[in-house]
Design a protein around this nucleic acid. Structure first.
Lengths: 216, 216
DNA sequence: TCAAAATGTAAGTATGCGCTTGCATTATAT
DNA sequence: ATATAATGCAAGCGCATACTTACATTTTGA
């Protein structure tokens, strides 16, 4: 017990700067890329001496790995909170899509960085992305499976594909906005809604096939 | 005429190594990123002395710009060939999607690189991506607009969004395959077909709302 | 209060990078 | 055949990087 307290306080003491370093690393990695990011800059952003960085993380690679693990932990924690389903497909999917889209926008630079350098840092990138996104995917698949049981969702659709399509639509939308910022004739909100409508139309039983709300 | 011939042969003579350099640059940039790529490595891959690289392109940045322009030219050229429309929505979109998907797979590393470093090399990246993808987008939009006139496509859908959704679905699929190579329970072919079905279902007039072929 | 742990400071090492220079060699056009 | 342009070769410059070492200073827990 006492030992545990000692360890706690010590790790907390270290965690102050350690977390500052992690946060700074995320920021610098995001905008400069892993190769372009320098340990000096990360330390400067963290308001910490560069040597301290190497005392916490033996190398730049290990810092990246720690960043990956840190993000995965954050996402896993954030996942546990959001689960209010009203059992109305359109409403639920729209809510999910908007939250997911907001998350994509928040971590835009980081996501793009991981996409670009995915095959250069295989273990770290994979660990983050899998641990961060696969649970969300499973959760949504399970929700749809539940909808099938209740008759809200057609039983003849591949739910894995459907979920990947929805998240893929949102990811692609975010990438378009940031990589090719060209006037496309519609707003981000309208795009998200349109994607949800697309999926709902495809998932809903045939009887309601011609529902398209007057909005947009 | 004589002068033109002189210039031709000279530029051709130079173009041999110039093109080798461009090809090598694409290769190295793709797998190492712009920052990670070294002029030494590019020259080595091109089987050319490093000094020659700097004689053709004064700096690494200008080499990147030349690569961008080169790619844009290639894509524009490739676009002119492919335009056989049978006026059957399902068939045409599937054909387009498969070609587009093959293109995405071919240039996978390069596309991921540009996504990751988009905001670091704004002019070059924008030039390439816009010149390469926007014409394709316009072409597909025009095709659908034609479909509206002929009654094959519902008039109440936003064609810009629809096209962006289809290409977005394909892009996201490619990225998933390469960034998160996890067993997802379906093949790439099946995914592409499913995406086309999704769009066709959404685009087709209401009368045929319950068409879903037995394949897949 | 006091030992131990964490952080700061200053300097340095080894390496690789983009890029240049000077000169020798090869190909090309007329 | 010869002048000209393109390429190769060897060496190097200046600079930034990741990372280290040795020592001084501060913070912390009991």
């Amino acid at each position: 017990m006492r030992l545990h307290y000692i360890k706690m306080t010590h790790s907390n003491r270290g965690a102050k700067t350690r977390e500052r370093l992690l946060k700074a690393a995320i920021e610098v990695f995001s905008i400069a890329g892993v190769v372009g990011a320098t340990t000096r800059e990360i330390a400067r952003v963290a308001e910490v001496n560069e040597v301290t960085l190497f005392r916490h993380f033996q190398s730049k690679e290990q810092l990246l790995a720690a960043v990956a693990q840190h993000i995965a932990a954050l996402k896993a924690e954030a996942l546990d909170r959001q689960d209010e389903w009203t059992q109305d497909l359109q409403c639920d999917l729209l809510h999910y899509a908007q939250i997911h889209n907001a998350m994509l926008e928040e971590n835009e630079a980081l996501i793009r960085m991981f996409i670009g350098e995915a095959k250069r840092h295989p273990d770290a990138a994979l660990q983050v992305l899998q641990q961060a996104f696969l649970p969300l995917r499973d959760k949504l698949i399970n929700y749809l499976r539940h909808g099938v049981d209740q008759g809200n969702v057609r039983p003849d659709v591949d739910l894995s594909i459907a979920v990947d399509q929805l998240t893929g639509l949102l990811l692609a939308g975010m990438l378009r906005r940031h990589v090719m910022p060209v006037e496309r004739g519609y707003s981000s909100d309208r795009y998200v809604k349109s994607c949800v409508d697309l999926m709902v139309q495809s998932l809903s039983p045939i009887s309601q096939s011609s529902i398209y709300p007057p909005n947009s």
